[in-house]
Simulated assay, not measured.
Amino acid sequence: MLELPTPVIAYLIALLLENRSLAYLLVQKDGALSAWGGKLAAYGVGNLQKGRNIGQQIFFLEGLLPLDDVSLFLPRLKTEEGICADVHIFPSEEGDWVLLLDATVDEMQLSLIQQHANELSLSQEKISRVLNQ
């Protein structure tokens, strides 16, 4: 495993907490929510109930849990409220962890790239039409 100096780890954690609105859920293998924390409100998640099935509380997790022994990454997933999040789901002895990280900046950058690609394509079509006339 990569060994990092403590100041580097502290910086990365602070950066993550400051810029990515970290939130987490711990779900038992039977689907019951057992713990949660972080900035869940930033994703429109609230009124969680311990012991209640997670799929009934957070719609996009329905059918994804329980995990076997493989982690799952869902990039730029839109929540019910339209908030863009990177969702990391990984198994542990305690249950399955669900991490939410804000992906709004990534989504905006991808949107800009797509917009530029579309504009380039339109420009090429116009040039082709002019040259063919």
Rank of each mutant, 00 (worst) to 15 (best):
K50T: 05
F90C: 00
L110V: 14
I113P: 07
A85Q: 05
L25H: 00
S34M: 05
L16R: 15
P7K: 11
F60R: 02
Q49I: 02
L33P: 02
Q49A: 06
I9A: 13
E18C: 04
L12A: 11
F60T: 01
G31N: 06
V105A: 12
L17Q: 15
I113Y: 09
N118F: 06
A10I: 03
D102W: 14
L101D: 02
W97N: 03
S34N: 02
A85G: 06
S121E: 14
A42W: 15
A41N: 11
D102Q: 13
D68H: 13
W97K: 00
L120G: 10
P7Q: 11
S121T: 10
D96I: 07
E80F: 09
F73N: 09
V105L: 14
D102Y: 12
L15M: 13
Q56E: 13
L100G: 06
F73I: 10
A10D: 01
A41R: 12
L12M: 12
Y43W: 08
T79Q: 15
E107V: 14
R76N: 08
S71F: 06
S92C: 07
K39R: 08
G55Y: 06
L4E: 12
L17M: 11
P91G: 13
G55D: 07
D69K: 05
Y11L: 03
V45Y: 13
L48F: 00
I9E: 13
L22S: 12
G82M: 11
A42H: 12
T79L: 10
L12W: 07
E18P: 02
K78W: 10
I58G: 07
D96R: 15
W36F: 14
L77G: 05
I9R: 10
V87C: 04
L72P: 01
D86G: 10
D106F: 13
A103R: 08
P5Q: 03
A14N: 15
I54R: 01
E81C: 09
L48E: 01
L2Y: 08
G38P: 15
Y11E: 01
G82R: 05
G82I: 07
F73E: 12
Y24C: 01
V87Q: 01
L33F: 03
F59V: 06
G63H: 02
Q28D: 14
L100R: 09
L16C: 07
L101A: 03
G82S: 05
K29C: 02
V105F: 09
G95M: 04
L4W: 07
K39E: 08
D69F: 03
D68M: 03
L4H: 04
I13G: 03
R76P: 01
G46I: 02
P91N: 05
E93Y: 08
D68L: 05
L120E: 11
G82H: 11
Q115V: 15
Y11F: 05
W36G: 00
S123P: 04
E62A: 10
A14I: 03
G63A: 06
C84V: 14
V27W: 06
